[in-house]
Nucleic acid binder design. Structure first.
Lengths: 203, 203
DNA sequence: CAAAAGTTTAACCACCTGGTCAAAATAGTT
DNA sequence: AACTATTTTGACCAGGTGGTTAAACTTTTG
């Protein structure tokens, strides 16, 4: 029983690694099996198909990211306090799980409808996200936040959080940085992004 | 002679479409041939291999983007004037060529070293980019710009420009927008981003 | 301990893939 | 019109791919 769990987890770890490197279409079941040090037929025994395996990992990513989002945005804090929590949570989560942005973007390209449905589903499980959007509007009406359309508001925040991770190899090269220095900069960025947003979004 | 050019271009158009939809590994030469309404062997006659075809398109993307960048950043204008030009140029270019961010990100995942080398090569063809980075430092020392590290400075700007295009399907769903409305918002964003950057980066 | 249940294996499969190649077709030149 | 050059075609290829299957092996159960 314990051994089964270990085998399942090992397959997931290996699959995640290979899918990250090669994308869904480029990932080979044999390569995943090799990485997990198992026989390829076992992939099908445990996860039935390549697609099922990928979906499992994808579900994990969407789950984790939406949880972080909803966790940050729920409760009675002010909008900017929630945004700060969101910046911090997302940055930490991505640093610990660097595969996630890449996965999500590949999935967007590969199977847009599927991803959209997954995401929508997660956001609709409760009213947290909708309430947050309404709260943004409310604080704009109260003169706390600048009257920027809500999509612009959210897109700006997400841009600043996520893109630096996605484009990491580009920036590593352009600025001739080490991986360590870049990750250090991502930590700094938590504060920097809040500073930026404070100046840009708050009246 | 004219006919040869047309066939080449038609193959490129078709290949771009299929590579966008499916990525490098998922794209099928037969599908490209079908899209171009030609015999599959012709792909090899004109472009020799799948890889060569992909590289051709990739080179075009890197070329176009680096040209836009260098064009915006060259000359005697102030940093923020150059940034404004960059925001505008990049936004227009991506709107006209929406495949580019997706391509570049796929290439980063697929073949990071190759991409980095291509980019480095383009940026090193002249001193424009380096001069711009020095100019940022200079204006910071003069008290015109806030003293933010140059990588943070550039990452912030690129994040605001590029990410909204990459994550378009996500935002389309979250905010239940039409494609047209989103593209309209991207136009608005030129001015909005400059507004944000003005508030945050300028003293 | 034997039987049942669960896991792993290696061989196999139909189909797909990027690419090859010689012949046919078309275009260009004299 | 004949010849040459270029383009297009369709058949073919070796190797790869995700998946299947029955047998062997291991673990669990009573």
């Amino acid at each position: 029983m314990d051994s089964r769990k270990n085998t399942e987890m090992e397959i997931l770890r290996a699959a995640k690694k290979i899918f990250i490197q090669h994308g869904y279409a480029g990932a080979r079941m044999q390569a995943i099996a090799d990485e997990a040090k198992i026989n390829k037929a076992m992939l099908h025994y445990y996860y039935r198909s390549k697609d099922a395996l990928f979906e499992k990992i994808m579900d994990g990513a969407v789950d984790l990211m939406s949880k972080q989002l909803l966790n940050a945005l729920s409760g009675d804090a002010s909008v900017m306090e929630k945004v700060e929590k969101m910046v911090s949570n997302y940055t930490d989560t991505i640093i610990k799980n660097p595969y996630i942005p890449i996965f999500i973007l590949n999935e967007i390209a590969r199977n847009q409808m599927n991803f959209q449905n997954k995401l929508q589903q997660k956001l609709e499980q409760n009213n947290v996200f909708q309430n947050f959007l309404l709260q943004v509007l409310e604080e704009q009406q109260k003169g706390i936040l600048r009257p920027i359309s809500v999509p612009h508001f959210m897109i700006t925040i997400m841009s600043l959080i996520v893109f630096p991770h996605i484009a990491k190899p580009v920036f590593l090269k352009i600025f001739e940085m080490t991986d360590t220095a870049y990750m250090h900069m991502m930590e700094e960025r938590k504060q920097l992004v809040m500073d930026f947003l404070g100046k840009s979004l708050v009246l």
